[in-house]
Design a protein around this nucleic acid. Sequence first.
DNA 1: GTCTATACTCTGATAGAC
DNA 2: GTCTATCAGAGTATAGAC
Lengths: 206, 206
Amino acid sequence: MAAGQQKTRTTRIQARNREAILTAALEVFSTFGFRGSTLDQIAEVAGLSKPNMLYYFGSKDAIHAELLAGLLDTWLDPLRALDPEGDPVAEIIAYVHRKLEISRLYPRESRLFANEILQGAPRIMAALAGELKELVDEKAAVLKLWADAGRIAPLPPHHLIFSIWALTQHYADFDVQVRAVLGEGHDPFAEADAFLDTLFRKLLAP
Amino acid sequence: MAAGQQKTRTTRIQARNREAILTAALEVFSTFGFRGSTLDQIAEVAGLSKPNMLYYFGSKDAIHAELLAGLLDTWLDPLRALDPEGDPVAEIIAYVHRKLEISRLYPRESRLFANEILQGAPRIMAALAGELKELVDEKAAVLKLWADAGRIAPLPPHHLIFSIWALTQHYADFDVQVRAVLGEGHDPFAEADAFLDTLFRKLLAP
DNA sequence: GTCTATACTCTGATAGAC
DNA sequence: GTCTATCAGAGTATAGAC
């Protein structure tokens, strides 16, 4: 311990502050979008002064970029896990449940993503047309094989994937509307979980 | 004609400018959200000077409020048209097509709405929990009657309506992502129209 | 009705003391 | 590493000439 502490590592505080900043920024950016958010807001939520925050991330752009960087992978992992060797219906249903679970656990990340797309995806267009399209095309090919083999209903595979995204993300992105319409005494995500299970089982039946 | 022109009516120019401002504001607000949009942007798109624009609408808030005011009715009309006396499946399918057509024709309005909800619906929460909930509850009751009579599959009616919203609005709000993933040579809305027709026919079959 | 000029506030970012 | 002070630019809104 005595001689152990390095000059360039105050890791304890640094790590905690970086984390606090990113958490606060996620909260604010996901609600107001990039341009609608201010460093003042983020600093206040993070419990730091504005200059101190800028000591960790050099600019507003840098904070936002850091958040987006980690986002796409988190978003794609559930789709990556779809196994071409598994049972078709079970695999797709499992994907739906995973995606809905992510909407439930990470609604702010979902809204951050939605905000970015709504604004024309200026900062992740390349990833959409590259990494994302590549993965979707690959999994769509699997879906098509399953359909051709008569193991699931013959549906346009890309739109089948879109429908999973739309239905699961809706419960995160439009949460406030869902709750306003349902009123008291509901558990939107639990109900959605059962409903989407039914929906996709009926849809996929050959 | 000669003595007809009133002092308080320069209606020609006024009407044209108001229209230009609202159109420009819709374009900008729907992309950047309320706080992310600036009067400079809107004025430039509208082809007016900033002070001149503020002569027509006293403030940024006033322009945004004007847009939102007209929005909810446009949004609810297709659902209002759902006829309890009609054929259940045909009525619901027709609603799906109407809603998708609105996404195709008015994507900016859809994104304006999405932005508002994403931000927690600060300006239309009352309408969501009031007018919107009321209409949805009414139509959900119709769906339930149809389900109880065995004329459509037994599904949670509110979530059935949510699924229609999610699937149709996705093609407007996430248009840029849909197109990036599909690549060249696709007509997203035409494909969606066919896909959603298939989807809901299978889903609703008793 | 429309413009130029401007008041005043907010916002992102930096300097420099501690 | 963290703070106070501060700057330059952008942002909303208004005053007042034409």
